[in-house]
Write a protein that binds this DNA or RNA. Structure first.
Length: 570
RNA sequence: UGGGAGAUCGUCUAAUGGUAGGACAACAGACUCUGACUCUGUUUAUCUAGGUUCGAAUCCUAGUCUCCCAGCCA
């Protein structure tokens, strides 16, 4: 079992008898689609719950209507399931609005909260700065009765948006700014995606999140580093409201049939997942979509979970990445190559092999008769027989990859050259007898002869040549659109803003290239989202939106590791 | 002297006073009908300076650097 500091804490808590079971939650705000960064939180919360025999809820943190949308709720549910997880219960922070309201009344009665008439700008002035203490609001000492009356009228919708807030009465001189009388309710007469027009006031994150955790009986509330400063406030609300000892506060939940067993949750922070060459900011992701730099939230160049899915990345590969990345409190940036490696590792084991030619050059086998046709057997996977076999049509005229031929071969080139020999995958050894060119000197075809002694089953079949290249039969190949994707950003840290360039300046215009390619027939008649290794080229997926058997569309997920390209590039 | 957190190979991450280990990357080689996969090997690290100790990545002191916080966002 993995040994990160969070699992250590969970193990210790369990051993100490603090909890009978581990309860976690994944709590996204439904204001956008999930991205690769969320995969870490999902795998952590669901993974820990599963490993320790507990459960994990999916909770939509929908306390800020206007920014949130049911479209995103559905997208989030879909993405979590795609990643391979199922929640114990689906909850919304908005399910608890009545409980939050009653709890706020309790805080007021206990002298721990007050209604403030300061507007946003005044409140900022009173708050002080990072190095200077704040001052008490002139409304801070209102009586309990007045606060109760005002807050009830806020709830009744009597006041204008922004005219008043409910604030926790803590300490305007605290070094931790979160403790300088944080707002816990604001007036916002906006329809809510879940509760419609029922509420003119909405609770703030710091107040709603910890109480939601408590209501759901969450034992370990995992969140990212920037919330470390919020933990004292988290504990303050949990302790002062004290839900376990005040069942009258959450009776509405029971009346509504929502199983409720409040507990005292513990917040633990870990460092978020950052990936080189990537951006994980909902705002920036939305900007890429909004300004048309990409074709949508599910564009294969996007590092949203939907984008990665369409690109062909696998849930198992993503889970492997999260496992390898580990969990700690250090700020870190994961090398994008690690992600690619994880995806390759998964795909190598799970993707059937096919042949496809992306940049075709005609190769004619002159010692084969016109109309020659054979169906050659190929293994679908080099190491796993359970993938079975397929037949590939072989004829006199073939397409090979243009870059598999060089008239002036560089040092170390193993492929075809004038008078050179190369193995045609699954066929035998061919020799380049003649290079055909057009008037402009462009190579248009290669005339080769096939050595019959090197055919499968012949005594010369195991004769060694340096290179093996792939091919498709020109007559039988199926034309396909193939989208070649590369990293969306050209630099490792597009966010850095060093050298005065903004992140948008680093968008790589070459990140999507569309080519017309030729597929062996068995690669065309497949279902959307089927993944293959096109031998020697990379891993490809049939596009889940645009692919048709009669008009195939494939996305390149990732290339194969290519030591030759690296060597030749030097 | 605002508050909080963190510093270990190139990148992540272990070691909880007792051999600084693993993964990925890189490099070299083997294998190969995919220049893939696989296998073998190699290189590379405890922020600095003091101290405690038989022994320090770990404890103490001082310093340095990095990140987070001044929404009626989450």
């Amino acid at each position: 079992m993995r040994q990160d500091f969070i699992r250590q804490i969970v193990r210790d808590d369990l051993a100490a008898g603090k909890h009978v079971a581990v309860h976690t939650r994944f709590p996204p705000e439904p204001n956008g689609y999930l991205h690769i960064g969320h995969a870490k939180a999902i795998c952590l919360n669901f993974g820990i719950a599963a490993e320790f025999g507990g459960w994990c809820n999916l909770r939509l943190d929908d306390t800020n209507p206007g920014k949130e949308d049911p479209e995103f709720v559905e997208g989030i549910k879909d993405d979590v399931r795609w990643l391979g997880f199922e929640w114990h219960a689906l909850r919304h922070a908005s399910d608890y609005f009545e409980v939050f309201y009653r709890s706020a009344l309790k805080l007021i009665e206990d002298g721990l909260a007050y209604v403030d008439d300061l507007d946003a700008e005044q409140m900022r002035e009173y708050r002080g700065t990072l190095t200077q203490a704040g001052r008490n609001s002139p409304y801070r000492e209102r009586s309990v009765a007045e606060n109760l009356d005002l807050f009830r009228r806020m709830r009744a919708g009597e006041f204008a948006d922004g005219s008043r807030t409910l604030r926790a009465k803590i300490d305007m001189g605290a070094g931790n700014i979160n403790l300088r009388d944080p707002a816990i309710y604001r007036i916002r007469k906006v329809a809510h995606q879940n509760t419609g027009g029922a509420w003119p006031i909405y609770p703030m994150y710091d107040y709603a999140h910890c109480l939601s955790d408590a209501l759901e009986g969450i034992t370990h509330s995992l969140c990212t580093l920037e919330f470390e400063d919020h933990r004292p406030l988290y504990d303050w609300f949990v302790d002062r409201v004290d839900l376990p000892n005040h069942p009258e506060l959450w009776r509405p939940l029971q009346d509504a049939g929502l199983p409720t067993q409040p507990a005292k949750p513990r917040q633990i922070e870990f460092s978020r997942l950052n990936l080189s060459y990537c951006i994980t900011s909902k705002r920036k992701l939305a900007q890429l979509v909004g300004e048309g730099h990409v074709d949508g939230w599910d564009d294969p160049r996007m590092n949203t979970l939907r984008g990665l899915r369409r690109r062909g990345f696998t849930p198992a590969g993503l889970r492997l990445l999260i496992e390898r990345v580990g969990v700690s409190k250090q700020n870190s940036v994961i090398d994008y190559a690690l992600l690619e490696g994880c995806i390759r590792e998964d795909l190598d084991a799970t993707a059937a092999r096919r042949m496809a030619v992306l940049d075709p050059l005609k190769l004619v086998l002159t010692n084969l008769p016109d109309g020659h046709l054979e169906m050659l057997p190929f293994a679908n996977h080099p190491k796993d027989e359970s993938f079975g076999m397929r037949e590939v049509p072989f004829a006199r005229e073939l397409w090979i990859e243009r870059e598999d031929f060089a008239e002036l071969p560089p040092k170390g080139f193993h492929r075809l050259k004038p008078d050179g020999e190369v193995r045609l995958r699954g066929v035998g050894i061919v020799k380049c007898e003649q290079v055909v060119k057009d008037a402009a000197g462009q190579v248009t075809a290669l005339h080769c002869t096939l050595d019959p002694q090197t055919r499968h089953g012949m005594p010369g079949a195991d004769r060694k040549v340096k290179g093996t290249i792939h091919w498709v039969s020109a007559e039988h190949a199926v034309a396909a659109e193939v989208r070649l994707y590369d990293r969306l950003f050209g630099v490792p840290a597009p966010d850095s803003e060093e050298d005065g360039r903004s992140w948008l300046d680093h968008v790589n215009p070459q990140a999507k290239q569309v080519v017309r390619a030729w597929l062996e027939p068995a690669a065309a008649a497949v279902a959307p989202e089927q993944r293959f290794q096109f031998e020697r080229l990379g891993y490809f997926v049939a596009d889940r939106v645009d692919h048709r058997a009669a008009a195939p569309v494939f996305n390149r997920t990732v290339t194969l590791r290519d030591t030759w390209a690296r060597q030749a590039g030097q």
